[in-house]
Design a protein around this nucleic acid. Structure first.
Lengths: 341, 341
DNA sequence: CTATTTTATGTAAAGGTTTTCATTGCTGTA
DNA sequence: TACAGCAATGAAAACCTTTACATAAAATAG
């Protein structure tokens, strides 16, 4: 109720009001059992009266910890991002950490800026959603100290970096097997961006499934770029040929949506005439017509695991680098059907 | 090239190496013109050799500024969020500020947690994307100091808070006029969530347009909730009645997508039989069939304006509270057509 | 009742900057 | 020649905590 003071209260104000030393106030807050009941009560009363909150910067400076984690993302518009971030935030908050987001848009200069930021000590750890090291050779030949790092959603193979992502290969195998179980034999894989590790991993699963078939089925891969436009373009290129596939397994849902759109434009009914299967289970997968059969990435879980791995490492630097591949479920909706006889 | 040191270099290390005092090092960095050329060169060399980066916490403590802004969002999955955030980040980064994101999911406890966080001084300012004050009565009856605040995307009417958002009313009027120009006279407004300020603002614009018509057109409003399911439900309820609308103006694109889906399920062709118009121009608006005619919210611009307003206020506390309503464009695609004769 | 341990508190250093103020050595003017 | 003014630098205070160490008082053991 006091008229708002110009300056926020410091620990010294509290100490004076409570008639104790600042050390006692500090202890009353952080190690209450170390302080006498009566004093603790006085201190708490003083805190309440002054509206005191400890200055985080002073704490951080003293403790040499910022209790912040930097998340570097290629693009926050990526439909997978919100889910992963939710998971990241959930465990970060639970453990008293804040989450800082850096949106790089693939710009190396921006990445470097965030790296410098990191070296100012404003963050204790780094989560990479970019799928690559911030700068070539980092951290090995970097002058500055680098903090614990974990890659999420897209794996990064590096001795010093844990990663957690979907088990793309198994999931892609399951997806392809599902199409095969519907009778499809001409299944095309619409790939992701050139050089995408994720696309390679999914391609492998697709090949695995094909290899297991009783009769031989040949691998059929066309290029894409992970966007719906890329999906459309893939369809256009395919229709120049004589033989057409009966099913599409797409690198991701965006691609699948483009494929479906292009097929519909050509008067082809999905799933009656052709089947389309995606990957990701983005929020919109259920909103298009036909609703999309796809693999669900456990986004939130990926975030939770990644942050847990990072914070464990922060708390206990000796914790070994570990990688987890999480299971992705096949979500059956209406974009796949039995092959036309 | 030196073997990585256990501890990061401090300003003292640099000073020793350069043979000057720490004050000079500090000046050489922040006010280069205040220091002799020869010394500056020595200092820079020392900085390069040590790989020194100033400890941000110590700087912040001393300067009483964290150079961080907290962005409180209801949900980072909101399709408008990435665009706004991009704008926010753009100007924040350009002006040396970091952006911290708090995802409240509408949980008051979480909001309060972030508010406490704010009062620790870890952020200098607050951007509210939530559409409401963090806690009832805040900041008026709050004990703790509250930092400069601006609301973005959803206006908050408060004497102490600037806001920047789309000029919903004008945009909604333009949208409705467009439908009228196509010959529609039975236009239904599918509202947003109960009590949504945004929905009210758009409703007003819709009414404005109707009021201007040469012949009287009656207002027709049905409930929705801002989701595609809400849109579907609205259609179901509508089809119990005798008279049907010829056009839908929807609170947002998600609603519109639900409406289109429900209409298609009933065998109604959009736009031949009925027209549907959305609001937002979310990334997916172009990916559905038919592609969605809608109002584009200038998301990135909203973010830029909001952050500019906040940082201006931070730099110059006397800057008056100001509100901006930005123009939203009508994006004509394929979900609206002339009324059937 | 003394000697020892335990408990509660205070003092002061440390954490890494920025910035005010004081000092030194010049340059140029009277 | 002396002095004002200026440029370059350094010493030290301030920012606000946490915590190691010291001290005093109280409890326990012998």
């Amino acid at each position: 109720m006091q008229n708002s003071p110009k300056k926020p209260a410091t620990i010294e104000d509290v100490a004076r009001l409570a008639g104790v030393s600042i050390a006692t106030v500090s202890r009353a807050i952080s190690k209450p059992e170390k302080v006498a009941d009566s004093t603790r009560k006085k201190v708490n009363a003083a805190i309440a009266r002054t509206g005191y909150t400890a200055n985080a910067m002073a704490q951080n400076l003293r403790r040499q910890r910022s209790h912040m984690v930097l998340v570097l993302a290629e693009s926050i518009s990526d439909p997978n991002f919100p889910g992963v971030l939710t998971g990241l935030e959930k465990v970060a908050n639970a453990r008293g950490y804040g989450v800082l987001i850096g949106n790089t848009e693939g710009d190396v200069a921006v990445e470097e800026k965030y790296l410098r930021f990191l070296s100012t000590g404003m963050a204790d750890g780094l989560i990479l959603l970019t799928g690559h090291l911030p700068v070539a050779g980092w951290p090995d030949n970097s002058k500055s100290l680098i903090p614990p790092t974990v890659a999420a959603a897209t794996p990064i193979e590096h001795a010093n970096i844990s990663y957690v992502c979907t088990d793309d290969q198994s999931a892609a195998r399951v997806a392809t097997e599902y199409l095969m179980s519907l009778g499809h034999r001409r299944i095309v894989y619409v790939a992701g961006p050139k050089g995408s590790i994720l696309s390679e991993r999914r391609l492998k699963g697709y090949c695995d499934a094909l290899a297991q078939a009783s009769e031989p089925i040949s691998i059929w891969k066309v290029d894409g770029d992970g966007t719906s436009l890329g999906g459309r373009a893939a369809v256009e290129r395919l229709f120049i040929r004589d033989t057409l596939p009966t099913a599409f397994f797409c690198f991701n849902d965006n691609t699948a949506i483009g494929v479906i759109g292009a097929l519909q434009d050509r008067g082809i009914d999905v799933p009656r005439d052709m089947s389309v299967l995606g990957f990701d289970d983005i929020p919109f997968a259920n909103n298009i017509t036909p609703s999309l059969t796809t693999i669900r990435q456990p986004r939130s879980q990926i975030g939770e695991y990644a942050m847990t791995a990072l914070l464990d490492r922060l708390a206990q630097p000796a914790t070994p680098v570990q990688t987890s591949e999480l299971h992705g479920d096949l979500i059956v909706r209406n974009s796949c059907a039995g092959v036309k006889t």
